[in-house]
Design a protein around this nucleic acid. Structure first.
Lengths: 353, 353
DNA sequence: CTCTGGCACTCTTGCACGCCGAGTGCTAAG
DNA sequence: CTTAGCACTCGGCGTGCAAGAGTGCCAGAG
C-alpha cells in the first residue's frame, strides 16, 4: 500500500521475475529459498509473496501453484528493480562490426537490424525504414528502357530510391530524357510534392517555361508517386525473428502464433505505438495490456527511435511475450538504435537532412 | 499391377482424394457411398479401396480407420484423374485487374503475386524476382548525397535497380558526377561484369582513356556490386501466406510451423527446385518426398516459370501440405505466371531483353 | 467373376475415477 | 517478525472401460 517495500521483498520480487523469465513456470516459495540460498524459511517467503500479491505485482492461477508476475509487477521491475547493465563489450563489438560491413548500403540496414535484434533478444524484431515526414526527392532520373517505356527513378533526400516505369507515346532518345530530367531537377530543386505542384501550376498559368509532353507527364507521375510514398512507405514495417519466437514456450499454441503473425504482418496494432515512439527519446517499454490494445495483452514491446535530428528517423524494437528478459532486450534495443543513429550522422552529417 | 483400372476404381480414387482434401480426415467406404450416392455397396467400395491400396495409391494408418492417399496416389490423381478446368472468368478478371493496377511498378509485382497466390490457393506462396542469368546494367547514375558521399545507382537491364553509397576523398559537384557517369555509361555500354573488367584492364594497359580517381573507384565498386547481385539477388525468395497455411489443420502442431517457417525463410530447400523450374516450361508439381528432400516430405510444391524468352525469368508458386487442392492450385499458378509473362512482354517487347 | 450382407475384430477416442505431488494458507509457538 | 507444522486444493497422469468407427473376410446371390 504505502509503497515502502522492505529490502527483502524487493529482492524476492526480483527473484520471482528472473526465475519466471528463465523457466516460464510459476515460481514457488520453496524453490526460491533453495535456489538462492535465502537465509529465511519458505514460510516467510510465502508471507512476502502474499504481500506482493496484495500490491498487485503477482498473481496466482489457482491455489497451489506458484506465483506469476502481473503486468504491474513487470512494470515495477523495469522501473525500480532491474540491473541496467549495458551489453557486453564483445557483443557491442560484434554488432557494430556487422553494421560497419554494410554501412554503405542503407537498404540493408533494416534487414540487418531486424536480424541482429531478433537473434540477440531471442524474440521477434520490428524495424521501420527511415520515415520521412515529408517525401522529397533529391534527384530525378529518366532512363530509356524500351521504345515507348521509360523508367523514372526518384532519389529521395534520405538516400533511398523509388522507381516507376511509364509509357509514353513518343519515342525519346536517352539524350532527350537526360535533358528533360536535368530541366526538371533544376526547376523543382526542392522536390516536395508541394514544390512540384507549384511548378506545375505556374507552368499552366504562364506556359513560357514550355515543358514538353514528356516532362509534364513525368511531373504528374512524380507528384502521385511522392504522395503514395509518404503514405505507403511511412506505414511499412519490417519484421524478423518469427522463428525465434516460435521457440518460446508460450507459442506452443498455434492460435497465439497466428495472432502474432497477424500483428507482425498487418501492423495495425503496432503503428500507433510506432508513431508515438517516433516523437520521443530513449527506449520505450510497453508491457502487456498497458496501452489498452486487447490483441496485445499478452505481449510486451520494447521500442526506440533511431535517426538524426528531428527530421529523419525510424524505429527499431522487439516484441515478445510479457515474459521476456527486459534488461537484455532494453540494452540491445538501446545499443542498436545508437549505432544506427551514429552511422546515419556519419553518412549525412550532423546539421542537415 | 497391370495398371488397367476399372472406371469405378478410378472414380473412387478420385473421390477419396477430393474427400480427403476437403475434410483432412481419413475417408471411409461408407462415407463415400453415402455422400456420392454410389450405386454399389460399401463392401464393394472396400474391395476397391483394398485394390487401390495394393497399387500403392492409398494407405491405412491402422486397421479400422479410413484410407489416406499416398504421394503416388496424388501423383496418379494429378496425371490422370484431375479436372483441368481453368480459373473462373471472374477470378481471372480480378487477378488481371490487380496486376494491371501496378503494371508500371515492377518491384510491386513480386509482392502482389505472392499475396494473390496465397489468398487464392489458401497456402503459402513463393515468388522470386526476375533472375538475370547475368547481371548487367543498362545505365549507371551518380548522385551527390553529401560532400564526400556519393550514391551510385545501377539500373539493370531487366528494369530493376540497385543502389550503393560510396565515400570519396574529393568533393565533386553534381555536374562532375553526371559527366563521369555519362563517360562510364558510354564506355561500358554492355554493362556486364566481364565488360567492365575488360574496360578496366584496357585502361590499365593504355591509360589514354584517362579515367579519373572517382571513375575508377566507381567502376571497381560496380564490378563488385554486380558480382554480389548475381549471387544474392538470384537467391532471394519472397514468400507470403504464412497466415493462410496456419489455418490448415496440419499446422496445429507448432513443430510443423517452425519447419515451414525455416523452409520459407531459409530457402535452401526451395532453391534447387527453383533453379530446375527456371529452365523448364509449364507448371511443375512436386509431391511430398518425390524429390528426396526429407524436410519436405510432408509438403507439395507447385511452381511455374514466368518471364519472356529465355533470358529473363523468375518463378512463382505455392507450397503447402501434400493435401492441397491440386486442380485449383495448378490453375492459379498457371494463370498468374502467364499474366506476369504477358505484362513483361508488353513492358519490354518481344524480341529483346 | 462380381457384388452384397453380415459379422467379428481392431484401434481410437472420450470419460470417469483415483492417486500423487506440488504449493499454498493458516495457526500456534519461538 | 519468523518459523515449523499441517490441512487443504488443484492440476496432471495413469488406468480401465465403453462406445464408435472402419475394416477384412466369408459365404451366398446374381
Amino acid at each position: 500500500m504505502s509503497a515502502e517495500l522492505s529490502e527483502r521483498r524487493r529482492l524476492i520480487m526480483k527473484l520471482v521475475i528472473q526465475e519466471f523469465i528463465e523457466t516460464s513456470q510459476p515460481v514457488a516459495s520453496e524453490t526460491l529459498v533453495r535456489k538462492h540460498r535465502l537465509r529465511v524459511s519458505s514460510a516467510t517467503v510465502r508471507n512476502d509473496l502474499a504481500a506482493l500479491e496484495e500490491l498487485g505485482y503477482l498473481t496466482h492461477w489457482h491455489t497451489s501453484a506458484g506465483r506469476v508476475p502481473t503486468d504491474a509487477g513487470y512494470r515495477f521491475f523495469v522501473e525500480n528493480l532491474m540491473d541496467r547493465t549495458p551489453l557486453s563489450v564483445t557483443e557491442q563489438r560484434t554488432i557494430r562490426h556487422q553494421f560497419y560491413q554494410v554501412r554503405s548500403e542503407l537498404d540493408q540496414w533494416i534487414q540487418l537490424a531486424g536480424a541482429v535484434l531478433a537473434r540477440t533478444a531471442q524474440n521477434a524484431s520490428v524495424v521501420t525504414p527511415l520515415r520521412s515526414y515529408q517525401a522529397r526527392f533529391k534527384h530525378l532520373e529518366l532512363i530509356s528502357i524500351q521504345d515507348s517505356t521509360v523508367l523514372m527513378v526518384l532519389v529521395l533526400h534520405d538516400g533511398t530510391i523509388r522507381q516507376q516505369t511509364l509509357n509514353v507515346e513518343h519515342v525519346w532518345t536517352q539524350e532527350d530524357l537526360s535533358r528533360s530530367a536535368a530541366r526538371i531537377n533544376e526547376r523543382c530543386h526542392d522536390g516536395t510534392v508541394d514544390r512540384v505542384e507549384e511548378v506545375l501550376a505556374q507552368e499552366r498559368s504562364e506556359p513560357t517555361l514550355a515543358f514538353n509532353d514528356l516532362e509534364r507527364q513525368v511531373l504528374d507521375l512524380a507528384v502521385r508517386a511522392l504522395g503514395q510514398l509518404e503514405e505507403q512507405f511511412n506505414n511499412s514495417i519490417y519484421s524478423d525473428g518469427l522463428i525465434e519466437i516460435l521457440n518460446q514456450p508460450e507459442f506452443s499454441d498455434v492460435d497465439r502464433v497466428r495472432k502474432m503473425v497477424q500483428i507482425l504482418h498487418g501492423g495495425q496494432d503496432l503503428n500507433p505505438l510506432i508513431t508515438r515512439v517516433l516523437s520521443s527519446n530513449g527506449v520505450q517499454v510497453v508491457i502487456g495490456g498497458e496501452h489498452g490494445r486487447d490483441e496485445m495483452r499478452e505481449y510486451s514491446v520494447v521500442l526506440s527511435r533511431y535517426g538524426i535530428n528531428n527530421e529523419v528517423g525510424g524505429v527499431v524494437g522487439v516484441i515478445g511475450p510479457t515474459r521476456m528478459s527486459y534488461p537484455r532486450t532494453i540494452s540491445t534495443v538501446r545499443y542498436i538504435s545508437t549505432v544506427m543513429s551514429d552511422l546515419l550522422s556519419n553518412l549525412y552529417g550532423e546539421g542537415r537532412p
